[in-house]
Nucleic acid binder design. Structure first.
Length: 344
DNA sequence: TCTGGGGTCCTAGGACCC
DNA sequence: TCTGGGGTCCTAGGACCC
């Protein structure tokens, strides 16, 4: 018996929940996102079913692009409460197994398991999830979260894959650095500029050079990822949110400052209602102008507060620090809470 | 690909203090 | 006087992930 980390990843989650609700959709391209109207500008796909992915429609594809490629697909608005309920049902199934369940968002979980046959466990979990909820999932098996997370993507949908320290080099070595969980396109480009294209090359890079280019934490961390290392702790301790935010992209740019202020107030009021008793220590306002330039301004409050009027007033005061003469595409407000263990 | 919304963490520079 | 060095806090922005 030894310890394993498993990553459970529900397949095409939001689309799958919609198909479950309406079985007539099965086999058709189903696209969930925005308000469900694919002609609305400035909206994107949240999840596409596998039938839609064949036509190049993925999460993040603009809805209008999806609509051009797939005019006859089924388009549905995002129904977060339905997905939360479906995700919670899956987590309950996972908890019925002798494993540690760490919920990781709506449709993912890491499991800590001690077994001789992790593939058999993974298959049992898949069958139980499908029997209880009708949803399918892919499961990755690894020595740590990084390996399990990557393995889950190897064989989707409904697959089981193993990626361990033993197989890391053979499996990952020749892949681009962006295959690593945490290396995106920007970092991939910077690494390529240093002549580091593959995982093996990054693993062999000079830590001091990486630290110089990416900072004292990020530089060494990149090499650590390339070596196939990662977090091994799986915990049931619920995540405590650091903060909370709301933002709105307007279908057409806002030009009226009074309307902007009204919107900032409304966003701040919503956040004040959603603190769940956690005092707010900092407020940030985000403004995206046309064409797509984004700026933030923030302020630490004189004292932590739950008071809605104080939070709204802070947001407005911060908003007034932006120049007011440009059309606005997006407005956002976010709050940070007192962190446990924070000195103040 | 005319580019959502909700998160997290890190970095760099300036202010300020001793 | 013509200018140190370290520590901490604050702010704006970047990058990544789902």
């Amino acid at each position: 018996m030894r310890d394993w980390v498993l990553h459970v990843d529900l397949d095409a989650f939001m689309a799958a929940v919609e198909i479950l609700r309406n079985p007539e959709l099965r086999g058709r391209p189903v696209i969930v996102g925005g308000n469900g109207d694919p002609t609305t500008p400035r909206t994107v796909v949240a999840t596409a079913s596998y039938e839609a992915r064949q036509y190049g429609v993925h999460s993040g594809t603009p809805m209008r692009t999806a609509h051009k490629r797939l005019p006859d697909a089924v388009y549905l608005p995002t129904d977060l409460p339905a997905y939360e309920a479906a995700g919670a049902a899956v987590m309950d199934v996972l908890r019925s197994f002798p494993v540690i369940v760490e919920v990781w968002g709506l449709d993912e979980a890491f499991l800590g398991a001690t077994t001789d046959d992790p593939e058999a466990l993974a298959r049992d979990i898949q069958h139980a999830v499908t029997a209880a909820t009708g949803l399918t999932c892919s499961i990755g098996i690894g020595d740590n979260k990084h390996q399990a997370k990557l393995a889950a993507q190897f064989n989707k949908p409904a697959g089981v894959s193993r990626l361990t320290t033993e197989t890391w080099q053979a499996t990952m070595g020749e892949r681009p650095t962006t295959a690593l969980w945490g290396v995106g396109p920007r970092t991939g480009k910077k690494l390529a500029d240093l002549g580091l294209h593959t995982v093996t090359q990054l693993a062999a890079a000079d830590p001091a050079e990486l630290a110089g280019r990416f900072g004292p934490t990020n530089g060494p961390w990149l090499r650590y990822l390339a070596l196939g290392k990662g977090e091994t702790t799986v915990t049931t301790t619920p995540w405590v949110p650091r903060g909370h935010s709301h933002e709105t992209t307007f279908t057409r740019d806002l030009t009226d400052p009074a309307a902007m202020r009204e919107h900032i107030t409304a966003l701040a009021r919503r956040l004040a209602e959603e603190t769940e008793g956690r005092p707010v220590t900092r407020v940030t306002v985000k403004v995206r102008h046309a064409p797509f330039t984004t700026h933030t301004r923030q302020a630490k409050l004189p004292a932590p507060t739950l008071d809605a009027a104080t939070i709204e007033q802070a947001a407005l005061t911060i908003f007034d620090r932006f120049r007011q003469d440009r059309p606005v595409r997006l407005l956002g407000v976010s709050v940070e809470y007192t962190q446990t263990g924070e000195r103040r």
